[in-house]
Design a protein around this nucleic acid. Structure first.
Lengths: 211, 211
DNA sequence: ACAGCGATCTTAGCGGTGTCAAGATGATCT
DNA sequence: AGATCATCTTGACACCGCTAAGATCGCTGT
């Protein structure tokens, strides 16, 4: 019994349904936003029955976890690119910060899912801090690189967290359109970001031995 | 034609059902978290039928707006108390920032609803920036007070936004329990908050005429 | 006073959702 | 080949947001 309508290689046992579901979820997310992301809609988008996902994910939350994981990896790539792009040391952290916030603006729905999943588990996803090439380690490494070896680990950690908090706060707040007049005053989106980030101060190499 | 006031919730059948629904919603929120906050559950908690809320709110979002409004007012009270509590000028903004983050930790579910509602409308709620005694104006006023009259309005605005971004980011991030070791290193919750906030720097009066 | 009106609340029902149990299907292994 | 087992479908349950129609009760004008 072959449908054989299109070159649609879908042999009722889908090749890689797990991957297809994650892709479908991201497609819906970018197209219709987070409120439209139901498990049934994902199954519909992938062309399978509403119960099919349960053979690959324990529940809806686990699918969202997989989606969020893809998002964190994409964010890590964007930040790494920003790091490699910035030649001088002084602008390193600012460049990374800008890339972070711009990612959140390019993929607002995905960014939201990424943090919603983290909140439900009371922890940032594993990929963000465990692996050596994670986004968190990238920022921490940048701070370490900028600050030099004499700064204590705990202070580097603190600086990293402070920077991450500021970037996340800015990412969420800059979605509010009431900031548009201020954005114009600072020469557009990126100018506004740089102004806020530089005002926050910790994206410039001022991490020094305290006291 | 006599009922000139639309929002004039007068007790007819139930008493003040509108208010009772908001209270019930907050009760559910604090007891079971945001995922349990369905319109039907709120009606159940208030002891009315599932359709009763629709005579006081257009839809679920409007109820959440009312809940969020209560939250913003409570946050404003907490921040004002912090402002009045801090005697010296130098610790003013830090004190306000700490009170902000601590509010988000005391009422995590409510805090989340407050921002979810804002996100859905692409703007912060009216009460936060329009009214003169709002939380936003309180922070801006503190910056203006600390910076003096020679600083331009646009820079005060930028400092306020940067501070708000940092506080919001810290509020969300500090919910993650992976920071607990670092929190202990800084002498508990409040010590950690003060360390991050002071590291961010803009909670100390360093708003000066640029360049 | 009393009829009418309109605001308030209920009942019933629609389509949608997450999730599970049981059956159909098909790839793989001996 | 036949058996096995992961995979996918069907069907069902409870809950959800939301709407329409009817019941209830206070207010108002005469």
């Amino acid at each position: 019994m072959s449908t054989a309508a299109v070159a649609d290689t879908r042999p009722y046992h889908h090749g890689d349904l797990r991957r297809a579901l994650v892709d479908a979820a991201i497609r819906i997310l970018e197209r219709e936003g987070p409120s439209a992301l139901s498990l049934r809609a994902v199954a519909r988008e992938a062309g399978v029955s509403p119960a099919a996902p349960y053979h690959h994910f324990k529940d809806k939350g686990e699918l969202l976890d997989a989606v969020a994981h893809v998002g964190w990896e994409a964010l890590g790539v964007a930040m790494t690119e920003a790091k490699d792009r910035s030649a001088d040391l002084s602008g390193l952290l600012t460049e990374i910060g800008v890339s972070y916030v711009q990612f959140s603006q390019d993929h607002p729905a995905l960014y939201r899912v990424m943090y919603d999943c983290s909140r439900d588990k009371d922890a940032l996803p594993e990929g963000i801090q465990d692996k050596e090439d994670s986004a968190y380690c990238l920022v921490r490494g940048a701070f370490r690189h900028v600050a030099g070896p004499q700064v204590a680990d705990v202070d580097i950690e603190l600086a990293t967290i402070a920077a991450w908090c500021a970037a996340h706060g800015l990412a969420e707040m800059s979605m509010f359109k009431q900031f548009t007049p201020l954005k114009e005053a600072f020469g557009g989106e990126e100018g506004f970001l740089r102004a806020v980030l530089s005002h926050l101060g910790m994206f410039t190499p001022r991490v020094l031995p305290q006291d």
